[in-house]
């Protein structure tokens, strides 16, 4: 057989195998019964890794804020286990002071998906998070005093840790194949307060927001990429 004919033959065989395997998968789907689904429903089908588009714009834009926010989730039936990581760096300039704050934070917590029967694995979720942030800050400032004159001073916190809880809600929707997008809105609360006696009271907690506020709101718009582990079998429709 000529090499060219051989390549054509191999191509046709491969095409046939692909078509056959697709048919086989279809047949497998048709015989996939509720009990099998029930046994395997808690086996993760993939991981979604998302990057916050707002922070991405800040990194490449002219913003004073430089931050990254990454989020990943693994599915367990209608539940997701979420891991989030972020970095933050910002300088606040005023007429009499320069304040710098930088740090990293980590969040972990579950979500429950209300759209778990959706064949595209879209998610309308509610969840909770425990968050912890490690950061440092510093301020240099000038004082203008009628009695003591003008002077410049410097204060810093080298190693700060804060933790808090969050209630989250949001959406995740498949846009095209492995590309997804999603929103997460979050209410942050019960931040611990261990720094009021410091010479410098932190203005900002990376991942939380204004340190002096008892609660904060947050919002991210994620560009998400999904890496599948196994074929996703949606939950069987409820029998009426």
């Amino acid at each position: 057989m000529q090499p060219r004919s051989m390549r054509t033959f191999v191509f046709l065989i491969s095409l046939g195998l692909i078509t056959h395997s697709h048919t086989a998968f279809s047949q497998l789907d048709s015989v996939y019964n509720d009990s099998t689904w029930h046994k395997q429903r808690f086996i993760p089908t993939g991981v979604r890794i998302g990057l916050d588009a707002i922070s991405l714009g800040q990194v490449f834009g002219s913003s004073d804020i430089k931050q990254w926010k990454l989020a990943a989730d693994v599915d367990f039936y209608r539940y997701f286990l979420n891991f989030e990581f972020g970095t933050f760096e910002r300088q606040w300039n005023t007429s009499s002071s320069v304040y710098n704050n930088e740090g990293t934070y980590f969040k972990i917590g579950p979500d429950i998906n209300l759209l778990h029967r959706d064949p595209d694995q879209s998610a309308l979720f509610f969840g909770i998070r425990y968050a912890i942030s490690n950061y440092k800050d510093e301020i240099s400032f000038t004082t203008n005093n009628d009695f003591w004159g003008n002077s410049t001073a410097f204060e810093e916190n080298r190693d700060l840790t804060s933790s808090w809880f969050e209630m989250t809600t949001g959406l995740k929707v498949k846009l095209y194949k492995w590309v997804w997008s999603g929103y997460t809105a979050r209410f942050k609360f019960r931040v611990n307060e261990t720094y009021s006696a410091n010479d410098l009271v932190p203005h900002w907690i990376p991942g939380y927001g204004l340190a002096q506020e008892e609660s904060q709101w947050g919002f991210e718009y994620y560009l998400i990429f999904r890496i599948p582990f196994k074929q996703y079998i949606p939950a069987p429709k409820k029998k009426s």
């Binding site: 300039n93 301020i139 400032f141 410091n198 410098l200 203005h203």
Partner: peptide, 16 residues
């Protein structure tokens, strides 16, 4: 006495 510094905001500046 002890001095505590905090930044109120970019518009307001620092508070001692």
């Amino acid at each position: 006495y002890e001095r505590t510094v905090s930044l109120i905001s970019e518009d307001c500046g620092a508070e001692i």
